[in-house]
Amino acid sequence: MAKTSSANISIRMDAELKAAAENLFEELGMNISTAFNIFVRQSLREGRIPFTISRGRPNNETISALLEADKISKDPNIKGYNDVDELFEDIL
């Protein structure tokens, strides 16, 4: 069997995040080093981060603002403008 060598790495993270991760991985029967190795191996197998990274769902206030903007854009009673100059002419 071929002998493998190991290398140390150092990762900085928030102490509370580290503690939460250690608790989770302990429940799964591993330590943080094993979990990180699993992550790296899966990344190499897939040739990418092995999960979707997204900005997440907008909060309720943002969703409300988007819905209101959509409603306004479709309302024929609300005046629209083709450019900023036209808008400023109307408000000045």
Rank of each mutant, 00 (worst) to 15 (best):
T4A: 14
G80Y: 08
T34A: 15
M30Y: 01
N77S: 15
G47M: 00
K79Y: 06
D90S: 12
R55Y: 11
I38T: 13
T52A: 14
S64T: 13
K79V: 05
T4D: 10
M13E: 03
N23D: 15
G29Q: 01
A2Y: 10
P58T: 02
L66G: 10
P50I: 03
R55K: 14
I72Y: 06
S43M: 05
E89Y: 09
S10D: 03
F88A: 07
Q42I: 05
Q42K: 07
A65L: 04
K18A: 02
S43G: 02
T62I: 15
I63Q: 03
R48S: 06
Q42Y: 09
E86Y: 06
V40R: 02
S43N: 04
R45S: 11
S64M: 12
S6P: 06
G80W: 07
I11D: 01
E61C: 07
G56I: 00
D83S: 02
D90K: 06
I91C: 05
R41S: 13
E61D: 15
G80S: 10
E61T: 14
N82C: 10
F51D: 02
G29R: 00
E16R: 07
D70P: 01
E26D: 15
K18S: 02
A69E: 08
E86Q: 05
I91K: 09
R12Y: 05
E46N: 08
I38Y: 11
N59H: 09
I72F: 08
T4G: 10
V84W: 13
K71D: 09
F88M: 12
L66E: 12
I49T: 03
I49D: 03
N60G: 12
I9K: 02
V84M: 13
T4N: 13
F36Y: 14
R55W: 09
I91P: 01
R12D: 03
E27T: 12
N82T: 15
E22R: 04
G47H: 03
G29A: 01
I72R: 01
S64V: 10
S6D: 05
Y81A: 03
E89C: 07
A35M: 00
R55S: 10
K71M: 06
Y81S: 02
A20E: 11
L67F: 11
S33M: 04
N77M: 08
A2K: 13
N77I: 08
E68W: 10
S64L: 14
T4K: 13
I72E: 05
S43Q: 05
F88N: 11
F51S: 03
I38E: 02
A69F: 12
A19Q: 15
D70K: 03
F25D: 00
A21T: 06
I91A: 05
L44R: 06
L28K: 05
K18H: 09
I49S: 01
V84N: 09
G80H: 12
S43R: 04
S33W: 05
N59S: 08
E27C: 07
L17Y: 11
L28N: 07
E26R: 13
N82I: 12
L24A: 13
T52V: 14
